[in-house]
Design a protein around this nucleic acid. Structure first.
Lengths: 147, 147
DNA sequence: TTGAAAATATTGAATATTCAAGAATTGAAG
DNA sequence: CTTCAATTCTTGAATATTCAATATTTTCAA
């Protein structure tokens, strides 16, 4: 009954692979819904973070939305063009730029939120309430233990 | 004790976000280890899938390693240049290309496997045996329920 | 106070990914 | 058989991401 050595285990048994697969699938579903408004998932994340109304620096935002700095800068450029967000120089530290959500951005964010809620409800239905909350708990704790 | 409406819940509570975050972190760690051999995670996956010695078509491979077709084609081009894998036209269906791992590829794959095992062991240590297997179980079942 | 090092954001070139179209082969209906 | 649709893979152009370098501002030690 000895376990086979890990080296020969199929890729589908690795945690890294299972996470990638699950992430890909859930992200694909979310993308599909958000595409109704023509918005990529990352932009929804940005809007959601900014919708607390506070100003967030680019560095803060990049961390929060899982994008690296140059990618975020360019995505924000597009969102500024679309008048969803705007830049303000931080008066306390002029190296920083504070990002804010516009009224237009808030309206869009509301629509996106309800599309995202649709998805979460769909997951709850097919996957179950209990499994979902247990999975969330485990993921949070994995993320914690990785820092 | 009513739950707050989901629409206002922070992004960090969404399953899609937790998955993205966990995936990013674990992938980053794995990347770091594999970079010792100068190999991206996707190439390790490809080698691992091919290391059963059977021929796998590009379509099959693309599914297995979570890459879309054109991206896979270009990555395989690089790996062929590096003599890690090779193409053979499928004799039974000449539309298909069967991919095989080379001896050089097998040698590299072994080294990569042990780097990957290192990581899994590191996760087991900091995150725990029980949590890890429970998380894997839940991820598998989420993936199942999404098809 | 000054000057060097650190922090923050952006830019541009190099690289990678994606989308849409194309080429080759097979399947299958008429 | 022949032809037309479907399947499989690759290519090229458009797009996006990343890396390294730059500009600006702040911090802090001498």
């Amino acid at each position: 009954m000895a376990k086979p050595p890990k080296e020969n285990s199929p890729i589908t048994e690795h945690l890294a692979y299972l996470l990638a697969q699950a992430n890909r699938e859930i992200n694909r579903q979310l993308e599909l819904r958000l595409s109704k408004e023509g918005v990529p998932v990352e932009q929804w994340r940005i809007l959601k973070v900014l919708s607390d109304g506070d100003g967030h620096s680019m560095g803060e935002l990049a961390d929060a939305v899982l994008l690296n700095h140059p990618t975020l800068t360019k995505m924000i450029d597009r969102m500024v063009s679309d008048a969803l967000v705007y830049r303000v120089q931080d008066p306390n530290d002029r190296r920083k730029v504070l990002m804010f959500i516009s009224d237009r951005g808030k309206v869009l964010c509301k629509k996106l939120n309800s599309l995202a809620v649709d998805q979460e409800e769909h997951i709850l239905e097919s996957y179950g309430d209990k499994s979902t909350s247990e999975l969330k708990r485990l993921l949070e704790s994995l993320i914690d233990s990785s820092n």
